[in-house]
């Protein structure tokens, strides 16, 4: 089987220039990372600010290339792909960013969604079909002729996702797509990407600072100082609360509550992730 996304001993360094000393300093943002991401999986990446999460995503999207090691996306080695062919990688692994206002360009929703596929020369008829399908998939077809300016944050992010979908990607990388959204917007975006993962088999790599957004993932990767320090199911990862705290992370509120109750001597299982699980466990004690 063809490998989907594979990082092989990836190092990424960049040069920071200190003005006063007139010397260059080398900063290592990623340090010997090896990981594989299976096609169709839902992976959440956690880590404190500056831990290397975004750099990792940009490697998969070929926005950055490794200093050492290799990144393979659908078999293509990003370092050995000629510059003019990098768009093929980016088409397979599209990226959605934090601020919805910075990634919307069209005056009308449908224009915005069509921008990507139009750029790679998709013929008009096919283009219209793709835009319709993409808008349907994110539940925004009713807004096709609306101005993006009037939409809520959650709706704008769904439009940005539709723009990716119109390129028929195999994978969508999302860098804190919910950081600026209200609770409803966060829920909308999360539900949309879970559905795309489930129904369309699109691989999702979601970077977030909201621990609750990780509980329904297949896999959680935690980064610290440019390295992967935890990698497992949400249950496995969130059972390690003390270790997570030591690297500036936390766990969902309900997990922390269960942990505190365990400390008080209640016989609860480890790594409780949902309200239902906690309620069930507590009621069976009573």
């Amino acid at each position: 089987m063809e490998e989907f996304i594979r990082l092989q001993d990836v190092v990424y360094e960049y040069h920071a220039y200190a003005e006063e000393e007139h010397e260059e300093e080398t900063v290592r943002a990623l340090s010997h990372i090896s990981a594989e991401i299976r096609e169709g999986s839902f992976v959440v990446v956690l880590g404190h600010n500056g831990s290397g999460k975004s750099t990792l995503a940009k490697q998969v999207n070929a926005l950055l290339l490794p200093t050492e090691g290799y990144v393979y996306v659908c078999g293509a080695n990003t370092r050995e792909t000629p510059e003019e062919d990098l768009w093929k990688i980016r088409k397979n692994a599209g990226m959605v960013f934090q601020n919805p206002d910075n990634q919307i360009i069209g005056n009308v929703v449908e224009e915005d969604v069509a921008f990507g596929p139009e750029n790679i020369g998709i013929p008009e008829e096919e283009l219209a079909r793709r835009v319709t399908r993409a808008l349907e998939k994110v539940g925004m077809e009713a807004y096709r002729m609306h101005s993006p300016n009037r939409l809520s944050g959650g709706q704008k992010q769904r439009i940005a996702i539709a723009g990716m979908l119109a390129l028929k990607p195999k994978c969508i990388l999302m860098d804190e797509p919910t950081a600026m959204l209200d609770p409803m917007g966060r829920k909308e975006v999360l539900e949309t990407v879970h559905e795309l993962n489930r129904k369309e088999g699109i691989t999702i790599v979601l970077i977030t600072h909201y621990m609750e957004e990780a509980v329904d993932a297949d896999r959680v990767i935690v980064m610290d100082r440019g390295q992967i320090v935890m990698d497992g199911t949400p249950k496995e990862v969130f059972s390690r609360m003390e270790e997570l705290r030591a690297i500036r992370m936390s766990v969902p509120e309900v997990t922390e509550l269960a942990y505190e109750l365990r400390k008080e001597g209640l016989d609860l299982p480890e790594g409780i992730l949902s309200i239902e699980e906690l309620t069930e466990a507590l009621c069976s004690l009573n």
Partner: peptide
């Protein structure tokens, strides 16, 4: 209104619905 409550509020309501006699107006994990 597109908002919500802290997760602990939902936990307490779920427990109350299951017949546990708890106050639901909590704000924090503590």
């Amino acid at each position: 209104m597109g908002l919500s409550a802290p997760q602990v509020v939902y936990v307490m309501h779920a427990l109350e619905a299951r017949g546990l006699d708890v106050r639901t107006d909590v704000l924090t994990i503590e």
